[in-house]
Design a binder for these strands. Structure first.
Lengths: 350, 350
DNA sequence: CTGAAAGCGCTTACAG
DNA sequence: CTGAAAGCGCTTACAG
């Protein structure tokens, strides 16, 4: 492998000078610079990033922790983060926590060992242990998509309560009266806040169904309403929940589903029991994944601003890296969502 | 940050000894080992992987290049690779080529600069330039999911021709006579081979529609049959292609769609024109993504062995890394697919 | 503007 | 079994 020394020799300068022209941090005469640049090109030299990182304490690498990278929603989110990282000249080290606290912690350590400049984490099972590790190691980090239970950490999330309210209100506008909610894991702020928004909207409309034990912490959230079902943000979970819900209470005339993946499962379950989405059962999802546009019928959903979420998260991380002493507790960003009207709510053909 | 020297001081030994117990590569007295281990625990010391890599020339990091990581099929494939990598104690550096040759090359360089132990690549647009870079830099690498046009490189792929044949034959068994094919980009071996399998099955059954300019290279593949449509492995592409196809030729009674994502778009298009999948139009997809189980109607598809593909790819890469002089040209693996019968083919309710 | 030298945090012959 | 020392490939004061 050709190294800096080879370039120096070829250009007839000292190795240090090669670094100087590489980094442009030091004055170099034009004539010398040209010779070195020529040598670099001729030898097709590329500096060893590891050695450089060791010397500079900057790896230009970002650790990204995702709870389930094969889930299309997270895949879209991760892809957006990667784009934003690339724009900041950062390469992504990817960790799929697989909703396992041990695995999440393992990746966090692997990231730290490799001296990532920072991490963007969507924690699953191991939020508390994970964040403790991050704090202990003083790693720059921002929590994306969800908030840790009871911890004050830099975060970028969407207005889950607001989005869920809009979704539910839209269902109410369509004349629905018995509106259920199928959401994700009760330990996730995103899942709980979406249930909360649904609950609040119902209360405002004078409808029954509310009561989510709002503001609860891990373990405390209970499906206090028979119309509310906690599960997981997966297709299977949505399928199971809807099957169960419709069996238990056929009078349900609408469902706010807190993720598109679950909504796809719900659509399947609804077809199984012979109901017609958009007609005798209105449905609104959450996420606005690319796929939501192609379901049959088309899914009405709450669209998240992926690119913006990613850009803001990377930006926030950049600020923390630049100024480690910055007040991280004050870094919280909540982005708005948007209602995308399609067919399952009743706006279009069933 | 606590370093090896701190541990050494605390344990009352030389820094070298800390390395010895860390790596277990050198004899150390039990008593000393215990003292060092205690110091490591007390100081919560973790070795700097960058420094270690610089000294050992092994980064325990793998570069994974994906053409579109937000596409659910690739997300599942990437996730499988990550699992396999983890099992081999490798962390994944992820690059989303975004079907852009320049971006692919950029990631390849970023991987090399960071001294990845090897790369697993699913090339999009820049197969040739990308592989040239890999060869020039002598990076251990294996091509996953597709073969480069005209290049002999280590690869792990699925039996695309065979799978497509099975899919098409199944359609024939259902009594279909006018069977179209919607596939991916004509420059991709996977897309071409699936079209080829379809064509061969038609010929075997004495049906019209064949002719894919089989064995073609980039740019030469032409949609020689009006029943064959090249596009891209995305939902939108599938939607567009099916809309166009059904408008042009309403007599089509079946479609073999070469990817599940496209099939989801096809399902949407079919609903738009008022046809009924599984009844007056049979459909079989390809990939066996998790989502395919939840479409309405349920998608019959050719299932790929994700975990096995990933494990074999990582294993092959491991062999190349272990023995750089190994005969890479001889490393080719083709795994079988499986027909998953559901509803869109006519086996189940429409 | 240029270069010798120390340092980044490890590994690993080699000598003792 | 233990340790001093060279080396991995860079960066960056510091002196000239």
């Amino acid at each position: 492998m050709v190294g800096r020394v080879d370039v120096a020799r070829r250009a007839g300068v000292s190795p240090a000078v090669v670094s100087y022209v590489l980094n442009g941090s030091h004055p170099v005469s034009d004539e010398t610079r040209l010779r070195v640049e020529a040598a670099i090109l001729e030898l097709d030299y590329r500096p060893n990033a590891l050695a450089r990182s060791l010397a500079t304490s900057r790896s230009h690498t970002l650790g990204l922790l995702i709870p389930d990278s094969s889930n299309p929603y997270f895949a879209e989110l991760a892809s957006a983060v990667e784009d934003a990282a690339l724009a900041s000249n950062l390469v992504v080290l990817l960790g799929n926590g697989a909703d396992d606290a041990g695995r999440e912690l393992g990746y966090l350590r692997a990231f730290r060992d490799r001296q990532v400049d920072g991490v963007i984490a969507v924690f699953g099972a191991g939020f508390e242990e994970g964040w403790r590790e991050i704090s202990k190691r003083r790693m720059p980090a921002v929590s994306l998509d969800r908030l840790p239970p009871g911890l004050d950490v830099p975060s970028v999330v969407v207005d889950n309560i607001g989005g869920a309210r809009v979704a539910t209100e839209h269902l109410v506008e369509h004349g629905r009266r018995r509106i259920a909610c199928i959401t994700g894991g009760a330990e996730l702020s995103s899942a709980r806040d979406r249930a909360r928004g649904w609950s609040e909207a119902l209360a405002d409309a004078g409808l029954v169904g509310g009561g989510v034990a709002a503001g609860t912490r891990v373990g405390e959230a209970q499906p206090v309403s028979p119309l509310l079902s906690y599960g997981a943000f997966t297709v299977d979970s949505g399928y199971t929940a809807a099957t169960e819900l419709l069996r238990r209470d056929p009078s349900v005339d609408a469902i706010f589903v807190a993720s598109d993946m679950q909504a796809m499962g719900v659509l399947r379950a609804v077809a199984d029991v012979g109901r017609t989405p958009g007609a005798d059962l209105a449905i609104v999802g959450f996420d606005g994944t690319k796929l939501s546009e192609y379901t049959t019928p088309r899914l009405t959903t709450i669209t998240q601003p992926y690119a913006q979420l990613a850009t803001e998260a990377v930006g926030m991380l950049g600020r923390i890296i630049a100024d480690p002493a910055s007040d991280r507790a004050a870094m919280h960003l909540v982005l708005p969502t948007e209602l995308t009207r399609r067919d399952t709510c009743g706006c279009g053909p069933p």
